[in-house]
Design a protein around this nucleic acid. Structure first.
Lengths: 230, 230
DNA sequence: GCAAAAGTGTTGTACTTACACCCATGG
DNA sequence: CCATGGGTGTAAGTACAACACTTTTGC
């Protein structure tokens, strides 16, 4: 490449750190791992990795996500960039945090062992390396806002879900109990779910009907100027 | 420094780009400049600059802001990191965008000339270099959310402001008209403003009372579990 | 038959919206 | 004296919160 004005400036390591959220045992969990390298080796940490030439930030995050979970096509959103001078004790690194919403059951025990990874309740996060606790706090706040205004919570499920499970999910994200009838009334009024004939009989004797989110109906819904709200 | 695992990774140029919002002529404006360097020299652009060793991201943004406006202690917030591979046609640069809220009248003509800078209505932004239009769009969306939930809009004023001016400000940020009586009712109910005896006689014959935002009262307000909302 | 979770409506309250007139003043 | 923008209250409608009982079925 041509010699340009750009060349005289400092360059930096850039890392992508992933806050991988999963819904497990009716709780919101984050997938944490033991940091594989020095410094702070074996301390609890988010999953992260360095960005490489030719990669976009999103691709770098997807690479990290795939390395640790073998999952692709995951819903991801940027939380922000973290650039304090001393944030990483191993060197000058600017980190860009992303949160990802995954179906916790797609992350199996084999992988967990390989990476010394563990689902940890978002309310019981241990002290993590660097500013990773702050990243999780920021990600959670953003997630709370996003699930209330956009239909993204469905990414925690594999296609179908029951209303009691959906409510449990919202309760654990918001960290407050919700009224069952009011919750269902809101969903009903938006008219974005399709009721299946199938029931989930695992969690109750009576069984709860499965529902799916109707994307086409949601497009119309937006076109009519309506806004998702839960 | 010790040889570490870190050293084997790619490094990148990092820029801080500032979306400088100002309230001028009852409109929300963004301070734009003619890009001073190749490529795209003389094209409309946000104010930006490269991050240097020893600087945090926030410091890099403050440096840019100070270079172009001579202002310090400005309210700033990160919008996000932009990392597409080809976003900057001059080389691989990761940009972190910040928005800043400034008092437009503190930016004088001398400075404007020096940097070929201009306040431009947020609805009439020309085609900017790279992904700067996207940055402004993202910043505006974030600003709209923030001013509705946190008392940051007061940073557009120098200490005191009138209610008609405050309403004009919210209307230009939200890009919709607001009802005068409802707007004032909300402010009244929160009880966070102090009415001064002084009036602004410049914008009307009758004159509008000046108000100030009471920070101490706002702390109590938060402690009582209340939330700012406009 | 009973324990455990699923499902279902109504009513009061708080908030939001819509709306019109008088006031103060400079020219 | 009049044109211009500043200031004020009420009523209707909508959205939100609170609340309890019946249904289904596996054991």
């Amino acid at each position: 490449m041509l010699q340009t004005y750009y060349d005289n400036n400092d360059k930096f390591l850039i890392a992508a750190d992933c806050i991988i959220f999963g819904f497990k045992d009716k709780e919101l969990n984050v997938l944490l791992t033991r940091r594989p390298v020095e410094p702070m080796k074996n301390e609890w940490s988010l999953m992260g990795g360095f960005m490489e030439d030719g990669e976009s930030l999103v691709q770098a995050a997807e690479k990290v996500l795939f390395r640790y979970t073998q999952l692709k096509n995951i819903y991801m959103e940027q939380v922000g960039a973290y650039g304090e001078v001393d944030r990483d004790t191993g060197g000058r690194v600017i980190s860009v945090a992303f949160y990802a919403l995954v179906q916790a059951d797609r992350f199996n025990a084999t992988l967990a062992n390989k990476f010394d990874a563990k689902w940890i309740n978002v309310n019981k996060i241990p002290k993590l390396v660097f500013d990773h606790n702050q990243m999780i706090a920021d990600a959670l706040k953003l997630l709370q806002y996003k699930v209330s205004t956009e239909p993204i919570a469905f990414h925690f499920f594999n296609y179908k879900f029951t209303l009691p499970a959906l409510q449990d999910l919202y309760e654990t994200i918001y960290q407050m109990p919700l009224d069952k009838r009011n919750f269902r009334k809101k969903l009903n009024n938006m008219d974005l779910l399709d009721k299946l004939e199938e029931k989930d009989k695992e969690n109750s004797k009576r069984g709860a009907f499965y529902y799916t989110f109707n994307k086409e109906r949601y497009k119309q819904f937006l076109d009519e100027g309506k806004r998702f709200s839960l």
